[in-house]
């Protein structure tokens, strides 16, 4: 079942609508290495979603090329191309008249897979996305928004595509569930290692999810394509600096966890608040400031103290 992830290359990819003065996507060139998550982010009008839809040819290219593992998308049969790419959208787009199992089985059925195969694959995928296999027989209307999005992800994964396109998958979901879905998606990705093109308008989501971030500006031009750390600490220009926000140094804190910095040797002091080593530095700073304490004990998963931390240790 293991399909290699595919390398995705945009080569001067351009979309120009005849009735508009500016292109929607302007000579976009970037390479997403196999197995990495690339987040397209930017203000509306930046052509993020257009760029994503160029890949599965929901929108045809005007000029330039897009290659998946070296093969141009225009050299492939369009339905074959789409079936080989996992596609997740914001409104999920589950088919309301089909059970969860039938939804997940859509593409495998087109490939001629048996009922038995689809049943087993559904159970496996539901478990993977954190749903009980008993959900297989439910209809989309019987699920919450977060559950539907999980099923949408399972459906996109059903035929084990080497490339996934995710168009603002979590934008319509409340912040608490969104954070959980993001965490689960990242855990899943560590296991599956798909190549993922992920569109969002939320820079915080981009920083959290992306291995690399491509910032698109008005007119569909690429402003910067880099790791989250470099985007935050070395913005290429004023536009990027403004887009990531004045608090970009603070945001950069979210890239590392307490477990990754050096702690002060800890002695068990009564009355000090405790904090998990897996907490990122930004949240830890918030925790310390909100708690009114200038020091906290960092503990590992089993609750063993690893040391203590102060706000100065974090911002240093």
């Amino acid at each position: 079942m293991a399909t290699q992830a595919a390398e995705l290359v945009f080569d001067e990819a351009t979309k120009q609508y005849p009735d508009r003065p500016e292109p929607a996507v302007d000579r976009l060139s970037l390479t997403v290495p196999a197995g990495e998550i690339c987040v397209l982010v930017g203000p509306s009008g930046g052509g993020k979603t257009t760029a994503l839809k160029l890949v599965n040819r929901l929108i045809p290219l005007t000029s330039g090329d897009i290659r998946i593992d070296g093969r141009s998308i225009n050299d492939q049969d369009v339905t074959e191309l789409r079936r080989s790419i996992g596609y997740v959208i914001q409104q999920v787009g589950l088919f309301p008249h089909m059970t969860v199992e039938a939804n997940i089985g859509t593409v495998p059925r087109l490939y001629g897979r048996s009922r038995q195969w689809i049943r087993e694959r559904t159970a496996e995928l539901l478990e993977l996305v954190g749903l009980d296999p008993s959900y297989a027989k439910r209809y989309p209307a019987q699920l919450s928004g977060g559950q539907r999005q999980r099923v949408g992800l399972a459906r996109a994964l059903a035929a084990n595509p080497p490339l996934m396109l995710m168009d603002e998958p979590y934008s319509a979901i409340d912040p608490i569930v969104r954070a959980r879905l993001q965490d689960e998606f990242l855990r899943l990705q560590r296991e599956l290692r798909k190549t993922v093109l992920f569109v969002t308008h939320d820079i915080d989501e981009a920083i959290k999810v992306g291995d690399r971030i491509a910032i698109l500006r008005e007119g569909g031009r690429l402003a910067q394509y880099d790791t989250p750390e470099n985007i935050l600490l070395k913005p290429a220009d004023e536009f990027v600096a403004q887009f990531v926000g004045a608090d970009r140094a603070l945001k950069a804190l979210s890239l590392r966890t307490l477990g990754q910095i050096s702690l002060r040797p800890g002695t068990w002091l009564d009355g000090l608040p405790q904090i998990d080593a897996s907490t990122n530095l930004r949240d830890a700073l918030g925790f310390l400031l909100a708690g009114g304490s200038d020091r906290a004990i960092v503990v590992d998963d089993d609750g063993n103290p690893l040391g203590t931390v102060t706000p100065e240790d974090i911002v240093r």
Partner: peptide, 26 residues
């Protein structure tokens, strides 16, 4: 629903498949 149609297209259903599997039942 528009989102179901977009998902169908994006998943590689042909026009005829979309009609019989998605539009007609809905």
């Amino acid at each position: 629903p528009e989102d179901a149609l977009e998902a169908a297209r994006g998943m590689g259903l042909t026009r005829v498949q979309t009609f019989f599997r998605v539009e007609l039942p809905l």
